[in-house]
């Protein structure tokens, strides 16, 4: 409180001391309240048991070429597609400048024949169609979201419609040749 020594009258000094105390006390009070709010806010984040369910092992042997299955990982659908060589070639040949969210097919797969994606439209979270036989696959042979009309290609990349991004590739690893661990 050196500055009080340089101010004029004792009344002024008293006033600035009071102001200082008021400001510091209020600041500590506000910061303290804000900090105390954190446990309440954080209690709404995913709990330990929810986080613990973070990986799913999938046996991929029964999936024939051209077939796809949907598994559940963290409550979300995950698409696992055994791509045909035609689909692989088409995806790889695609020019990046023609894509709304440019990404090479090689960056989106670990093994070209297995395409693994989170099956949630990046627009507003609907599940795109195209997994089952007879469902529309959209104009680019991948998936079609019926909610707002987004078309995805055989690499799960957005090609047309309101979705801003490609279908997300989850973290996954081939723990054996026939088993994938998602998450």
């Amino acid at each position: 409180m050196t500055e009080t020594a340089t101010t004029g009258t004792p009344a002024d000094a008293e006033k600035s001391r009071r102001d200082f105390l008021l400001v510091t006390t209020s600041t500590v009070g506000v910061v303290g309240t804000a900090l105390a709010a954190w446990p309440f806010i954080d209690s709404m984040n995913p709990a330990a048991d929810v986080r613990a369910l973070s990986s799913t092992d999938v046996d991929i042997t029964p999936i024939e070429v051209g077939q796809a299955i949907t598994v559940v990982w963290r409550g979300k659908p995950v698409f696992i597609r055994h791509r045909t060589s035609k689909e692989i070639d088409e995806s790889a040949a695609m020019a990046l400048e023609d894509l709304p969210d440019p990404e090479t097919d090689a960056d989106r797969v670990k093994k070209p024949e297995w395409l693994i994606l989170v099956g949630i439209c990046t627009h507003l979270g609907c599940i795109p169609l195209g997994q089952r036989k007879g469902e529309p696959k959209g104009e680019y042979g991948g998936w079609f979201c019926p909610c707002h009309g987004s078309h995805y290609d055989t690499s799960g990349r957005i090609r047309r419609g309101p979705a801003p991004k490609n279908l997300t590739v989850p973290t996954y690893a081939f723990i054996e040749d026939t088993t994938v661990r998602v998450g």
Partner: peptide, 8 residues
């Protein structure tokens, strides 16, 4: 994720 309290 905070709103959901999970991943979906």
């Amino acid at each position: 994720n905070w709103l959901w309290g999970g991943f979906a």
